Simulated scan of single mutants.
Amino acid sequence: MIADVLAEATSRMDRALEAAKEDFSTVRTGRANPQLFQKVLVDYYGTPTPLQQLASLANPEARTLIVTPYDKSALKAIEDAIRDMQNLGANPSNDGNMIRITMPELTTERRKEFVKLVRTKGEDAKVRIRGIRRQIKDDLDALKDEIGEDDIVRGEKELDAITKAHVDKIDEALKLKEAELLEV
């Protein structure tokens, strides 16, 4: 029983870690990256639709991204959705067939803002991991009637080790993203 509960904890913490890494990838660095547009929703015939379902994204140069819609009638809606993104600072240009986005150079001040944003996202991810730990600990405590106290204590120690490993992985991903952001 304890093994099942700990397996569930590991699974849930792994998903939280992956979500944190995806969240980190949406913060832009000095280069144009298609993952920046991962969460862009385009109003396509009245339905919010992810950009990846409406267009292909290509990265021909370090600071340029080309968005080619599958349906040319969605070109204006895609352009508007990209322009509405607050954290990009880019102005898309439309040539009638595709949208070209040139990312501006990041200033030192802007890089520091992005580092703060990433640290906040990292702290939120750690809070999610700790919340999962708390829920799993409650599940272990509920097993006290069926299993001995020593097994519960051993399970809690394993849970703490799993939690620490996942928090360390978030810290590691955070350090990599910070280094990437501060790289000129």
Rank of each mutant, 00 (worst) to 15 (best):
residue 41 L to R: 05
residue 64 T to W: 03
residue 139 D to I: 06
residue 26 T to C: 08
residue 102 T to S: 07
residue 136 I to S: 05
residue 30 G to L: 05
residue 138 D to C: 07
residue 162 I to H: 08
residue 132 I to G: 07
residue 51 L to G: 10
residue 46 G to L: 11
residue 71 D to N: 10
residue 81 A to P: 10
residue 5 V to H: 05
residue 155 G to C: 14
residue 71 D to F: 11
residue 135 Q to D: 14
residue 94 N to V: 13
residue 137 K to V: 11
residue 125 A to Y: 01
residue 183 E to A: 09
residue 163 T to D: 07
residue 23 D to P: 09
residue 4 D to V: 04
residue 58 A to I: 05
residue 94 N to P: 10
residue 37 F to K: 07
residue 16 A to E: 01
residue 84 D to T: 03
residue 93 S to V: 15
residue 131 G to E: 10
residue 131 G to C: 05
residue 95 D to V: 03
residue 37 F to S: 12
residue 169 K to Q: 15
residue 143 L to V: 09
residue 156 E to C: 03
residue 180 E to A: 08
residue 89 G to Q: 00
residue 50 P to R: 09
residue 142 A to V: 07
residue 184 V to K: 12
residue 65 L to F: 09
residue 109 E to W: 06
residue 61 E to K: 04
residue 179 A to P: 05
residue 84 D to R: 13
residue 97 N to Q: 12
residue 144 K to G: 04
residue 139 D to F: 00
residue 64 T to F: 07
residue 14 D to E: 15
residue 107 T to V: 09
residue 181 L to C: 03
residue 179 A to V: 03
residue 159 L to P: 12
residue 34 P to F: 06
residue 150 D to P: 02
residue 88 L to D: 07
residue 65 L to C: 07
residue 6 L to G: 11
residue 161 A to G: 04
residue 169 K to S: 14
residue 54 L to T: 11
residue 127 V to Y: 02
residue 4 D to C: 02
residue 55 A to N: 11
residue 84 D to F: 04
residue 140 L to G: 00
residue 91 N to V: 13
residue 183 E to Y: 00
residue 123 E to S: 02
residue 78 I to V: 04
residue 88 L to P: 07
residue 136 I to D: 07
residue 65 L to H: 06
residue 62 A to S: 13
residue 35 Q to W: 00
residue 20 A to Y: 08
residue 51 L to R: 14
residue 14 D to L: 09
residue 70 Y to V: 04
residue 95 D to I: 08
residue 97 N to I: 00
residue 36 L to N: 00
residue 145 D to Y: 03
residue 3 A to Y: 05
residue 116 K to S: 05
residue 69 P to Y: 01
residue 62 A to F: 02
residue 116 K to G: 10
residue 14 D to F: 02
residue 38 Q to L: 13
residue 51 L to A: 14
residue 71 D to T: 02
residue 83 R to K: 14
residue 156 E to V: 05
residue 174 L to V: 04
residue 66 I to G: 07
residue 135 Q to T: 11
residue 46 G to C: 10
